[in-house]
Amino acid sequence: MMLEVKGLHKQFGGIHASRDINLVVEKHGVHAIIGPNGAGKTTLIAQLSGALKPDAGRLRFDNTDITHMSRHRRAHAGLVRSFQITSIILPMSVLENVMLAVQSTEGHSYRFWAPVSQDAELKEKAMQSLSEVGLGNRADQMAGEISHGEQRQLEIAMALALKPKLLLLDEPMAGMSKEESANMIELLKQLKGETTILLVEHDMDAVFSLADTTSVLVNGHIIATGSTDEIRNNAEVQKAYLGD
């Protein structure tokens, strides 16, 4: 078992963003979380990655209790997230963004003297992650100047460079054109074999073509978990979410 969520609660004023969420993400494969807007998907991801503290509940990741672990420690433990709203360092080059990620895996960065630009090993590792997502030819461009779809790919490259055990992808297809989405789906299919993915997504085509297991989140509560077919045919899910 990669990740276990037990009795997770989070309340903002009168709104229950997470209500007694129980979730098990098995090793390998893609576990998708779907749900209508405002179901609490991003709140869930934020609690898993450590950006938000749950009001109650426990989190176990890779046989360790991480309920009270800080964000940066979780990243080092192998729990790595990408963001729904593209979150990269815009005034840096594409390569430099990924180099920052690689640098993070190599111990502390209290190194004050040697210029990063001459660190061939660091560059090479970053280039590998970039090529993996198909951004090799954009390495020297500024992160703020590439297309939206490419920025989403860069997000993934940065996450991959951290050598994640579990990749939390928060709507990786958000705001993408049809073609860009198709490319991203291909990319995620390739990654499937390498790492476990928890995919929060709106795009049903993407979910049904990628996911091995799917959980449905409605009003902060998981109403069903099962294989793609089970979810498709679940009457409760159809009523609450699929709408037909």
């Binding site: 997230r81 979150s87 360092i89 990063v116």
Partner: peptide
């Protein structure tokens, strides 16, 4: 150096750097 890059990154996107 590495230190400066981390500073620069957190100046522009602290959230991301923590992740």
């Amino acid at each position: 150096a590495r230190y400066g890059k981390v500073l620069f990154g957190s100046k522009h996107n602290d959230e991301r750097m923590q992740s």
